[in-house]
Every structure is written in structure tokens, then in C-alpha cells.
Design a protein around this nucleic acid. Sequence first.
DNA 1: GCAACGCGAC
Length: 610
Amino acid sequence: MLKIMMRNIAASSSSYCTSWRWRGMPCLHSNSTVVVFANDYFAFLHSQPSKRIKSTRTQLEQPVRNSPKITTVEDAFIVFDRMLQMRPPPSVVRFNQILGQVAKLKHYSAVISLYNQMGASGIRPGVCTLTILINCYCHLNQVGFSLSVLGKFFKVCLEPDVFTFNTLINGFLRENRVAEASGIFNKMIAGGNCQPNVVTYGTLVKGFCMKGNNSAAIQLLRKMEEGVCKPDLVVYNTIIDSLCKDTLVDDALNLFSEMMSKGISPNVITYNSLMNGVCKLGEWKEATRLLNEMVTKNIFPDVFTFSVLVDTLCKEGMVVEAEGVVEMMIERDIEPDIVTYTSLMDGFCLQGEMSRARNVFKLILSKGSMVNVVSYSTLINGYCKRKMMDEAMTLLREMSSKGLVPNTVTYNTLVDGCFKVGKLGDAQKLFSEMQACGQLPNVQTYAILLDGLCKNRKLSTAIQLFKEMEAKKLDADVVIYSILIEGLCIAGKIESARDLFCGLSSKGLEPNVRTYNIMINGLCIAGLTSEAEKFLTQMEVKGCSPNGCTYNTIIRGFIHNKQTSRAMVLIQTMKEKGFSADASTMELIVNLLSKDEVDPALLPLIKGSL
DNA sequence: GCAACGCGAC
């Protein structure tokens, strides 16, 4: 049914294929839903006015700004310096405008330094000045300094306003200091003269979402609906985005309809969040519907929307098509940004096409100051996955020479790469370097270290590290335990592995399909195939659906343990569930057949199954 | 007039 619908969409939009060349891509691929999705996506491109026309219109309609737009920090410093020398000096509002623009450029440290220049020249700050300053400290994750700015308010007899408090609440929430944030909120309510507004609520909603607490965010939304401060588009967008990130796309779509029924119209951000959600789930039909819907509402896809498309196509292995989207963006004057190019580069990396990835990277470098930590980390990851550790390490050193600070993700990638090529000493060195550079190891770092140690048969070191992790109060998740269970299985300690597995629920953790697969594999290697089969039943009962890997693992287990007929029965079940034998299972079966080890009565069954 | 909350990449 779904396929027929897809094909219909493709047919209805195929005319665009002939009029518009999708570089490197055949027009109709009957078996690829992504292509259909991409074809349909042509349709709205044609109905979309080009950006060039739009920008002419805005130029005519927009009144001339009375302050020059600052586009670089260098400009800001020059303008600021000139202003400081004027006698009498310009109003504080003029200074605030510059500070605000530099803050928008995310050069928070520059704002602080400009503010200090103001002070040195005897310019008195206003409420707005100090609020901008607080916001900068918050974005630099130094909310502590914000509190001293708050002290400054009282020193110069200024009263913080709702902007100031909202900024502070945001700062505390960014640093996970929920108690302090809600403390400010409660004081605002109790204080009387500075009541929370829709931004205050929006900030709190964002805080809940950041902690993964969608239900608390929705509860606050319901409270707003009952009160005088009604939720606005931003509040809805925040929750919709969070639900999408947690793959709760249906809930997000319900909230989306609810929002519209209340008369709040979505914008491009709403659609981008939803698009991202449905794309991550591979729901192309829904993605196509959303794209068409947004265009009919005169909401035009922007660089974010296109980047989501590029990323999705790349993750699906359709990097040529992704490249086509990038070319189309350029033709339509929607300038691809660092995220777009990094996604494309990652696409080539995923295909193992490192020289083409390198070409995208060269393009990024040629664009000037575009390159960032993520783009370096992405290329480093590409080399690490290809076991090209020399190239990866060269890039790490190159980053530092460009003034970019490698972060936890960069180091995690490299540490993992070292383990995968068996360079345990290098992995250790990088782990130390990372901490020496002030990059804190996270749960993922420990997962990489534990996995690397276990796979390189250093179980006791891994267990020692796990204890260190517990001491640091880093909450071990199911991924960490799965790695340890696998480590124990590799070391032949099946009893300990089973104990750890069974103890998961008492830690408030549920095994996932990967945990089950690891346990099943361990049991099969230990020759305990019947118990492995019991785990297969158990996972189904507990609502954790086995995947292709589960079946392949246990089937291989049966074959290795010379239980051919049980293997064949399970192959049948696997086939019924829509999974198939992978390469290594197939090899075993072919081997069996060639050795004439199969009961002739089973032959038709095998032939029917494969 | 200037400031606060919302979207994409490793």
C-alpha cells in the first residue's frame, strides 16, 4: 500500500524530473522510497519563489536602519573605539546596540571586553547593558559571574527587569542548576512588580526539555493555558522539537495540530523540527507531506530544512543525491552553511570515500572562517573508521594550530579509533591529553574505553575503570552494562555476565535489543543454546522485539553446536518475521550443505527458507 | 531605541 502511494507521488512529480536535472540521479527508481521523496521535493522547489526576488522586496519594504549592521567583531571594535572617543559620548543605547550585535554573533568574550572598555571610559551601563553582559556569561557557562553582575545593578542603583531575570534563569538552566532557576522564578511570582512573562515560561519549558523531561514541559504548557500568560509559538516549538528529538513524532504531530487549532500558526522552525523527526524515523511519506504542506502555507524551506534533507540522504547512503540538493541550494541562493557541508562530508565518510570527503573539507577551508570543531571531528571520525589513524592525528594537531579546541567528541572519536587498531597506548595517551586540556570525559568516553579494553582482552582494567566511573558518579547506562556483559562473555565468564544482565532491572535499567543479542551470543558461545532460546522468548514477552541480528546470532549458535534441525526451524521463523540470513550465517549454511551434513529431509526446508 | 526562550552536522 505504502509503496503504491509512493509510486503515485513519483509519477505525479516526474515531469519535474525532465525539466529539472537532478545531477547524477536517474529519474525513477522504483525500489527506493528516498528517491520518490526526493522527486516530490522537486515539486515544491518549483512553487517556491527564489530568494533573489524575495530579498529585493524586503529591501524596498524595510525602513533604513539607523545603526550600521555589525557583521564582524573587528568592525565592532573599530566602531566602539570611535564611539568612546566622541565628546560628548553617544547614548548608552548606541553602545548596547553594538554589544547586542556582537552577542548575536556569539562572540561573548568580545562583548565582555567591550563592556570593560566602556567602564574604563566612564560610560555608565544601563539595565540592558548589564543584561547583555549576564547573557554573555551564561553562554560562556560562567553563570557565577552573572551573579556578580547582579551585584553591580545594586551598586549603580539600577533595578533588574524581567529581561534580566529571564536571562539569569536561562543561565542557571544551561548549567543544570534547576533549583536556582526555579528560585528566581518563585521570587518573581512572589515579588509582584516583575511578573514572569511568556519568555520566562518558555525558558523553563526549554529547561525541562533539555533534561529530557517532556512531561514536565507539557505540564507547564497546560498551566500556561489555564493562566493569563498564554503559550506562544516558541513554547510550542520548543516542546515539538524536544518530542521529535526523542522520536516521539506522533506526540509532536498531535501537539502541532493542537497548536494550530488554538489559532497559532507554525513557522519554518516548527516544520524543520517535524521534518527532522520524521526523517530520522525514515518516514519519507510524512516528510514529503510536511514539505508540501509548508509550501502551500507559504512557509519556505531554509538552510536548516535543506540541511536536514542533506543529512538524511547522506545517512541513507544517497550521497550523490545529497550533493544534488547542495547544488540546488546554491542555484537558489540559499547558501549552504558549515552544517550543510559537514553533513555532506560525513556522507562521503560513511561511504568510505575519503578523498571526496577531503574535497568537501577543502571547500569548507576555502570559504574562510567557516570551519569549526564539528567539521574537523567529522573528518577525523571518517579517517578513524577507515583505520587511517595517521591522517586523523594530523587533523587533530592541525585543529590546534587553527585555534580550534578539540572537544570531548573529537577525543572520543580518536580514542575509539586507537582501540579499533589495537593501539592501546595511544588511546591511553589521548585520554590523558583530553583531560589535561580540560575536556571532561562523558558516559560515551567511558563506553569507548570499556569497549576498547574488553575487546582487547583487558577485562580487569575495564572493571577497574568501571569502578572509577562509579566513583565519579557518572551514571552507567544500559550501553555501559551491555559492554561489560559482552566483556565478561568474551572472557568466558558467562555466569558473571548472566548475573550482571539479571541485575539490570534492580538498577532501574531495561536491557535493549543489543543487550539481549550480546547475552544470547555469549550463551551460544558457551554452548548454552537452550538458554539462549529462552532469552529470545523472554525478550519478546517483555516487549523488546528481536531483530535480524538476534536471529542470526542464535541460528549461528545452533549450527556451531551441531543442532542443525533447530537452526533450520529458527531460519523459518526468522523468514516469517521479515528478516534474512546475513553473510556469515549464509556461509555456515553453505558450508553445511557442501559437507553433506544436512539431513536430506531438511533440504526442501532450507531451500524454501533462503 | 538596546537585552531574554525555539530548528540542522561529529
